[in-house]
Design a protein around this nucleic acid. Structure first.
Length: 271
DNA sequence: AGAGGTACCTGGCAGC
DNA sequence: TGCTGCCAGGTACCTC
């Protein structure tokens, strides 16, 4: 479900409610996420203060003085700030309760999400250690993409969706960015010019920033921490628009599969 | 090393 | 109304 803009929207939504608040209790109703929620999470978090809510790629980091909770929303996860009167739903797997009687509630129907605990600096954690640069940070440049892709035969769409290349670009924004840059999604990553990569890096930043400004994209069930949807869906150019005319040239948008994921592109504008 | 496929899980929807 | 099959915003891990 969430790509980087949705995760960042979530981070911004929850941070003011829980930063500098102390956890009073953690209720794990169902520990069966992608990996089991560690039993010690409750003891580790209880009584400690959240010092910051960080993000690395699509991982959210609830930082404390004792360690860090590493949280990922997977395909269908969401976090909401609720109070204790809020009825518990079927997929409300974890509650982190705070001293201001607010609850950070993790909902995740498909349970592809992650909630782990580490005492070490989170960047050293196995899941975060080898991640590529942040797309909105200074290390993500056309020169970087160009250098990194030399000799690679992988399709450009798969290349930019790989978290070891760059974090945060999921299936929606990969199609959108390639459309904006005029790059065919099946082009071999190693056969794209430095100049095209410069454009690609720019449009990736643009599309992610715009989506964050709109509160993310809601396709089916994404809601932010207030339970409201995002509105970036209205801005999508190609994603989910197979068979519709390209807004630029009127050629019909094509839908193909790449690695069992849907890809949308304009065969005229993208080469 | 790189490329590509598989697995994890539930729910919604189209088609019969 | 049911049933079946397919699809869904992610990514670690496996094999070749």
């Amino acid at each position: 479900m969430p790509e980087l803009p949705e995760v960042e929207t979530t981070r911004r939504g929850i941070a003011p409610h829980i930063t500098n608040r102390t956890v009073t209790k953690v209720t794990v109703r169902d520990p069966r996420l992608r990996w089991p929620v560690p039993r010690r999470l409750s003891q580790e978090l209880a009584g400690v203060k959240i010092t910051a809510v960080g993000r690395r790629g699509k991982y959210l980091l609830l930082e404390t003085e004792n360690g860090t909770a590493i949280l990922h929303l997977g395909m269908s996860g969401s976090l909401r700030i609720v109070d204790s009167k809020q009825p518990v739903g079927k997929h409300d797997h974890v509650d982190i309760v705070f001293d201001n009687n607010r609850i950070l509630r993790l909902t995740d129907p498909r349970r592809f999400g992650t909630l782990l605990w580490t005492r070490r600096p989170p960047k050293q954690h196995k899941l975060l250690r080898d991640l590529g640069p942040e797309p909105l940070g200074p290390d993500f440049t056309g020169a970087y993409l160009h250098a990194r892709s030399r000799g690679r035969k992988v399709a450009i769409k798969n290349f930019i969706m790989n978290g070891h290349t760059v974090v945060g670009i999921g299936n929606i924004y990969a199609s959108e960015a390639l459309y904006m840059a005029g790059i065919h999604p099946k082009r071999a990553a190693g056969r794209i010019s430095r100049k095209k990569y410069q454009l690609l890096a720019e449009v990736v930043r643009e599309v992610l920033n715009d989506a964050i400004a709109m509160g993310g994209t809601s396709l089916r069930d994404f809601v932010n921490s207030d339970g409201k949807p995002g509105y970036f869906r209205l801005e999508l150019n190609v994603y989910g628009k197979g068979g519709e005319p390209c807004i630029s040239c009127r050629t019909l948008i094509r839908e193909i599969r790449q690695g069992q994921r849907a890809t949308f592109y304009c065969p005229e504008c993208q080469r």
